[in-house]
């Protein structure tokens, strides 16, 4: 049956929502840094999908959703500075003998959060989709409709940026 799945079928549409809604919301969150706004834009993207349900094939759904979400984001928000916030686990008890002690402080984590927020859009999205949503490079490439090599490049650049930032922070003794 999946090969004949029409998106105009309520059941199929609902399944697409269940599978993709959260990841798409997160993707928009990485872009705009406002979770309510991200959820609104995500729902607007799904409304668009419903209107075009007869034209979009099942295989193209994911790419379509991300492309629409991206356009809606560009329409609504003009490259504002984002400041992302994540829920973090509690830090283990500090131990001065730990060689990574410096990294295991709340201040340091906040600095890293800011560093991630400050990454260029493309790097930030790809990096977080990989680390937070646990998507493979292949899945990210499919969703953003770019090549796997581009994903690899974006993530590598994000990592190099982070590495530089960590060194800088350590030197500043934060």
């Amino acid at each position: 049956m999946p090969e004949t799945s029409s998106i105009c079928d309520e059941q199929v549409y609902h399944d697409i929502y269940i599978t993709n809604a959260e990841k798409l919301r997160n993707f928009l969150y990485y872009k705009c840094g406002d979770s309510d706004h991200a959820e609104d834009l995500m729902h607007d993207s799904f409304v668009k999908l419903w209107k075009k349900c007869a034209e979009v094939t099942f295989e193209k759904v994911v790419g379509f959703l991300y492309a629409v979400a991206n356009n809606l984001f560009l329409d609504h928000v003009r490259s504002q500075k984002v400041s992302l916030k994540f829920e973090k686990s509690l830090l283990p008890k500090s131990d001065l003998n730990d060689p990574l002690f410096q990294l295991r402080t709340d201040e340091f984590r906040l600095q890293i959060e800011t560093a991630i927020s400050d990454l260029p859009d493309g790097q930030r999205e790809a990096f977080l989709m990989n680390r937070i949503d646990k998507l493979t490079f292949k899945e990210i490439a499919h969703q953003l409709e770019i090549s796997e090599t581009s994903v690899e490049k974006r993530i590598s650049k994000a990592l190099l940026n982070l590495k530089g930032k960590i060194e800088e922070l350590k030197q500043r003794k934060i």
């Binding site: 997160n26 969150y29 979770s35 994540f86 829920e87 973090k88 686990s89 990294l103 984590r109 890293i112 991630i116 680390r131 937070i132 990592l159 982070l162 960590i166």
Partner: peptide, 10 residues
């Protein structure tokens, strides 16, 4: 740091 980021959630 990446290991820590991996445990972050939305």
């Amino acid at each position: 740091v990446v290991e820590d980021i991996d445990s972050w959630k939305i």
